[in-house]
């Protein structure tokens, strides 16, 4: 830990300043929004993982969460709505030595971009997908999302959501993800550890981070920012390796957090190279050629 003399007149440097485009700070996220905390955990994990940051790219879609790509001081792409995963897939296929981090929102990744998620997981595309799940479309004013809990209020469900939300870890597992975890923005150390682990692991990794959107979700559901954090504290049940089918989001029942899936199977590129690019296999990754 660097030491900063108290007498220094210079503005002290935040330990993550080297990974942030500080000229764009303060960011656009509202007071009490959890995206900044998840983003900060992601940056801390990038540092802790020891991966080559010169060969690491962050890709986001559209939404408040999608703004992350614009704040990280790495190569990054802010793509069109729902298309972060296919964009990252293209980057990975064209340049397999890159580490791909997709950082985006629940609406972006699971509504408009839902099919891309499914197929990237099925292919075991080598990337780490971090979903900030704030239970609604924050950026556009708080519409119902595929992740909004049953009976929760939103601008488009003023009397309560009649639909049931996705169980995201179950979906990721069922589609073929090889690493699946869920934390909240209050469980920052666990969240950071999971992101670190996922970054170091090959294959399709998925981390869901529950996060408050006080301005659009909280306001309509009578939850002040701190109420949401208290809810995470009270309702969290940490259960590593829990059966993914039990992980639906129901704040009455309690929210199960943990690392659920951590397994190994060949990635898309490994299969692809074996069949279509054997020359690359011989040059770069001889151990796969057995």
């Amino acid at each position: 830990m660097q030491e900063i003399p108290m007498t220094s007149k210079k503005q002290p440097q935040h330990p993550l300043d080297d990974l942030i485009r500080t000229d764009r700070i303060p960011h656009i996220w509202c007071p009490g929004c959890g995206i900044g905390t998840v983003f900060s955990a992601c940056l801390a994990a990038l540092k802790a993982s020891g991966i080559n940051l010169q060969k690491t790219v962050m890709v986001s879609g559209i939404g408040c969460s999608g703004r992350a790509a614009g704040y990280v001081k790495l190569d990054s792409f802010h793509t069109t709505h729902g298309r972060a995963i296919p964009f990252a897939t293209g980057l990975k296929l064209a340049n397999p030595e890159l580490n791909l981090v997709v950082f985006s929102g629940d609406g972006d990744l699971f509504a408009i971009g839902g099919n891309h998620f499914i197929h990237a997981a099925r292919r075991n595309m080598d990337m780490t997908v971090i979903c900030v799940n704030n239970l609604n479309y924050g950026m556009t004013g708080g519409q119902v999302a595929a992740t909004t809990p049953y009976m929760a209020k939103s601008t488009t469900t003023p009397a309560g959501n009649p639909e049931l939300p996705f169980n995201l870890p179950l979906m990721a597992y069922a589609c073929g993800a090889t690493y699946v975890a869920r934390w909240t923005m209050l469980h920052i150390r666990d969240l950071t550890d999971s992101i670190t682990e996922a970054l170091c692991k090959k294959g399709f990794s998925f981390i869901e981070a529950l996060s408050p959107c006080p301005v659009n979700y909280g306001r309509r559901n009578k939850q002040k920012p701190l109420d949401m954090l208290k809810l995470y504290q009270e309702k969290a049940i940490i259960k590593n390796h829990a059966d993914p089918s039990t992980l639906d989001i129901d704040f009455e029942k309690g929210i199960i957090l943990g690392k659920f899936i951590d397994l190994d199977r060949p990635t898309f590129i490994e299969h692809y190279d074996k069949i279509y690019r054997p020359s690359r296999l011989q040059e770069n990754v001889p151990e796969l050629n057995s």
């Binding site: 002290p12 300043d17 700070i25 900060s40 920052i188 150390r189």
Partner: peptide
């Protein structure tokens, strides 16, 4: 430091 969404305290 780690909970601050704003990189404002450490």
């Amino acid at each position: 430091e780690i909970i601050c969404p704003e990189f404002a305290i450490f």
